[in-house]
């Protein structure tokens, strides 16, 4: 369980959060819904320790977010943001590199599952041989979503991760994440496809 307690954050004199509270339980599906510039990304970044709140605290299973608990938390996280930039090289080289992170030592990579995910997200298997610079924005975004799933993460932080996808694919991706009951998902979006899902708990940003 993750608790955000009395979080306040301002940017350039604009108050984004003022004593904001949130509890995230295992299996929750939470949507941060609001216009851009209302602090959705910042909130997700605070969760990950990439951004410090001006005041307030974040707890992971009762332990305050610090240099130990944050790295522990990140092990379980799959994070996808809008316009993920992979850098250079072939897709499979990136996958291999990420599979070899010391945190993933116990994973047993399975080619079959990878191919299934690619198929599910309408990507050809040949994409693995492609240069990252040569694939389209939509393909890149789907690849960015597949990687953490393939790495068997259980806590997904999706920052406008479906924005670059067409409506059909968007729905498919959203259902895919929501249908895994055991996964915790906290997403930010400003598209309707997320809103209409029954299991989602919506938190509106920028309305204080």
């Amino acid at each position: 369980m993750i608790t955000l307690e009395n979080i306040s954050l301002s940017f350039a004199n604009k108050k984004l959060f003022d004593n904001f509270n949130l509890k995230i339980n295992r299996g929750d599906k939470i949507l941060l819904y609001g216009k851009s510039g209302t602090g959705k990304s910042s909130l997700l970044k605070m969760l990950l320790g990439f951004q410090m709140p001006d005041s307030g605290s974040i707890y992971f299973n009762g332990k305050i977010s610090d240099q130990k608990s944050i790295w522990e938390f990140r092990k379980k996280v799959g994070y996808v943001s809008q316009d993920t930039d992979f850098g250079q090289g072939k897709i499979y080289a990136l996958l291999t590199e990420m599979l070899h992170y010391s945190n993933h030592r116990e994973l047993e990579p399975n080619r079959e599952t990878l191919l299934n995910y690619l198929d599910l997200f309408d990507l050809p298997a040949s994409i693995l041989e492609k240069e990252m610079a040569d694939i389209s924005g939509g393909e890149k975004q789907r690849m960015a979503l597949i990687i953490p799933v393939f790495l068997q993460k259980s806590f997904f932080i999706l920052d406008e991760a479906t924005a670059a996808l067409d409506s059909g694919m968007k729905k498919k991706v959203i259902r895919f994440f929501l249908d895994h009951k055991e996964w915790t998902v906290i997403a930010s979006a400003h598209d309707r496809e997320w809103l209409s899902q029954p299991e989602i708990k919506v938190i509106k940003t920028g309305e204080e």
């Binding site: 990140r74 994070y79 990420m98 945190n103 960015a144």
Partner: peptide, 14 residues
């Protein structure tokens, strides 16, 4: 390329 760096950090890289 902060995005890329964060992507890796937040997907299990030390």
């Amino acid at each position: 390329n902060e995005n890329r760096y964060f992507y890796h950090l937040a997907n299990g890289a030390n």
